[in-house]
Computed example of a mutant assay.
Amino acid sequence: MTKTAEQTAESHVFEADVARLLHMMVHSVYSDRDVFLRELISNAADACEKLRYEAIETPSLLGADAENRITLTLDEESRQLAVEDNGIGMSRDEMIEALGTIARSGTRAFMERIEASKAAEGAQLIGQFGVGFYSCFMVAERVDVVSRRAGTQEAWTWTSDGKGSYSVSPATSLTEAPSRGTRIVLHLMEDAKQYTARWTVERIVKEQSGHVPVAIRLVEKPGKEPVQITDGTALWTKPKSDVSKEEYTDFYRGVSGQYDEPALTVHFRAEGRQEYTALAFIPGTQPFDMFDP
Score class of each variant (00 low, 15 high):
Q194F: 03
G284T: 01
G257E: 02
Y195I: 06
L174I: 03
A55H: 01
E275S: 15
M25D: 09
T237V: 07
L37T: 09
E6V: 13
T237G: 08
S11E: 12
A5R: 12
K245H: 11
K163I: 08
P213E: 06
F14W: 10
D75C: 08
I102A: 10
A177R: 06
A155V: 01
E67Q: 13
Y259K: 15
V83H: 06
G127S: 05
I88G: 08
M1S: 11
T200N: 05
A82Y: 02
F36T: 11
R79F: 04
H12L: 15
E54F: 11
P283S: 09
A103W: 13
A192E: 07
T58S: 06
G130P: 11
T101C: 03
R183W: 03
P178Y: 01
E275M: 08
Q7I: 11
S165D: 13
M138T: 13
M111D: 11
T182R: 00
K238M: 05
Q258C: 11
T159K: 04
A45K: 14
E54Q: 15
T249R: 15
E39K: 02
F14L: 03
C48G: 07
R79V: 12
A55F: 00
L235G: 04
V26Q: 15
L125C: 12
V13H: 15
K221R: 15
L279E: 00
G122Y: 00
E225H: 13
V146W: 04
L186M: 07
T58R: 15
R92A: 06
E112P: 08
Q228D: 08
K245M: 10
T159C: 09
N68G: 14
T285K: 14
T196M: 03
G130Y: 12
I204G: 03
E247A: 09
G232M: 04
M138P: 09
V243K: 02
S31K: 15
A98R: 15
Y252T: 00
P59C: 01
L21H: 07
P293F: 14
V143A: 03
D17M: 09
L81I: 02
L264W: 10
A45H: 14
K3H: 11
K224S: 15
R273M: 09
D242K: 07
E271W: 07
A263L: 05
L174D: 02
Q228H: 04
Q228V: 10
R253F: 02
L188R: 02
T8M: 08
E49R: 14
A171F: 01
W156L: 04
Q153F: 03
P222S: 07
